[in-house]
Design a protein around this nucleic acid. Sequence first.
DNA 1: CTGTCAGGTGTTTTT
DNA 2: CACCTGACAG
Length: 671
Amino acid sequence: MICFEDELNPQQLKVVTDGDGACLVLAGAGSGKTRTITYRVAYLLQNGTPQENLLLLTFTNRASKEMMERIKELMGMPLDGLTGGTFHSVAVRQLRRYASLIGYGNDFTILDADDSEGMMSLAMRDEGIDLKSKQYPKPKQMLFLISFMRNAQMTVDDVIEYKYPGYERIRDIIERCFVAYTQKKKEANVMDFDDLLEQFLLLLSTNEQVRDELSDRFKYILVDEYQDTNKIQSQIVNQLSHIHGNVLVVGDDAQSIYSFRAADINNILDFEKNYKKAKVFRLELNYRSVPEILSLANDVIRHNKKQYKKELKPTNDAFQKPQLVTLSNQFEEADYIGASVAHLIRTGVKPEEIAVLFRATFHSQPIEVELMKRGIPYDYRGGLRFFDRSHVKDMLCFMRIALNIHDIIAWQRVLKLQAGIGDKTSGKIIMALKELNTLGEVVTFDLAEHLSVRAKAGWERLTEMLTGMINSSGKVGDMIDAVVRFGYKDYLEEQYGNASDRLQDIEQLRAFGTKVNSLEKFLTDTSLSDEYSKGNKEQTDKVVLSTIHQSKGLEWDSVFVMRLVNGGLPNDRALTEKGGIEEERRLFYVAITRARKHLMLTYPIVGGFDGMTMYEPSMFLSDIDPELFESPGEFQSEEAIFVDADDGEVQYVTDGGGWSGTSFLSDVNDL
DNA sequence: CTGTCAGGTGTTTTT
DNA sequence: CACCTGACAG
Ligand SMILES: Nc1ncnc2c1ncn2[C@@H]1O[C@H](COP(=O)(O)OP(=O)(O)OP(=O)(O)O)[C@@H](O)[C@H]1O
């Protein structure tokens, strides 16, 4: 039996025991929103709600997994009936069941970002658009616009007016590309990420029976990180709660950092409008961070105009002020952080309780080198997923073809692996195979008349692999094995020096495949899972390197936030977006509030790919009361002494009001 | 039509 | 410094 009174404060407890109907929990970082939602689930289960009736929506699969673990621990029982995951993964499960109702086969395959771009290229080419012309958006850009539009449930005109006024003149072209792209996906029986949401919503809104069935099943819907949901997601929640209206969402407007994905803060602001009789709860105590860190966080976020005012009130005892360190360049910055991490570990902080956070994935490169040099293991989050590695993806494309023979993007990839087959020939072959419905027909199909000598040889090598795959047992592991044996291994060895590394990755993929009981599930999991790099390697004993975006909802004892320069955070490109400054500031706020005890902010004075670009300290730093940082004398490192005093005075005048004379930098000069 | 090589270009965030 | 693009030889 869980004693809820002991585990929660009165406000939290109220949400847990009184969370029926529509409820919005609006609260700052570290106030226990996730904890509250977790205990709410436990409370419902303890009071006899069957697991099947709960739906727990989270932002990432990782978050879902963590929450499930926690609930399992609390309840002391397996959670085999509880549905949890991202909107995308929940959607895809239902879409497999009901595919035929929306005109898809249930053997549809899923396009990732690259695949979608490939599909968009094909669509644009079909529309007669010259992909090289500077006059038109590149496929990537086009896709981005269209994706935003769909997630925000807008029309082409809406999105142009709201985000791309410059595209007014090519409005019709965008529309045409959108239609062509949609059509091509349908023909190929593939869905992109946005389709998973869109088609799910379509399913719910056009099939009352399905909607009622699912709404009746998911009697309690809980959503974490609601500030980062977009319009289509809120509509899905709305449909699913149609019968009962039991929707509990938690969020923090100050932590909304996914507007590029059309995250819409209006979901929170309009919650009371959308759900009559909605209850609003607030949590005001912060359990995570020491007061010094909270003061800093409050001081940062108060500069945002568009926000619900809320102060974070500490529950922890005073400890230590955050530190701000200036380094001469990006390598010194990495070196300094590396040394500090090593120091923390020596003094007994567990590696997994230390995180280095940054705005963009490439910021982490010098840190990686540094940690490697010092023999400190790290877990890198962000960047290339394991399943996106080119050789792993090659293999997945073979599997996709086995499931969905019309997946032309997968075909294009496996065809182009062969020497002698490029853009044109692969297109030709795909056209020729269009009408065929089984792989058996494909491998015996006579293509000779279409192909050059070289291409013909390539095609023969490919059919050998495909034949091997068909003749295997049909189990995922065996199919992968067959593709490797019947030619892919040779291809790798011919093409790459590190073929054996790559084969090891494929072996991991195969191992993963043998654990999954169907090809559909294998492909769905590999498309949507956020399982990074080395498969299931232990995550303990490792320092975490992560983008700030990926750090959302997590916490560590010690946190480093690096590259705090204009152009780093805030990011230059982000500043050109509407509301960009405030969003970047929220990003900074999220980063700061991940820390429990130690927080260190760093920035280099020069950097860039040429190592010659002069940086200004982040405009967000100049907003901060210098008193909130530990005074430099107490922590300044050897490295930091290299800071050139003159640079300090001349450089740090920014148009945003300038660097105040009493800032910490003057203190550096005093040293 | 494919594949390679030299020269120019320019770094966001994720399901 | 790495990645992409465009020019050209096979
Ligand atoms: N009532 C409580 N008693 C003890 N610890 C608590 C309490 N409430 C929350 N905590 C702890 O505070 C920390 C932050 O909680 P949690 O992650 O749930 O906050 P959050 O509001 O979801 O934060 P964020 O918005 O940053 O994701 C966790 O370690 C949690 O266990």
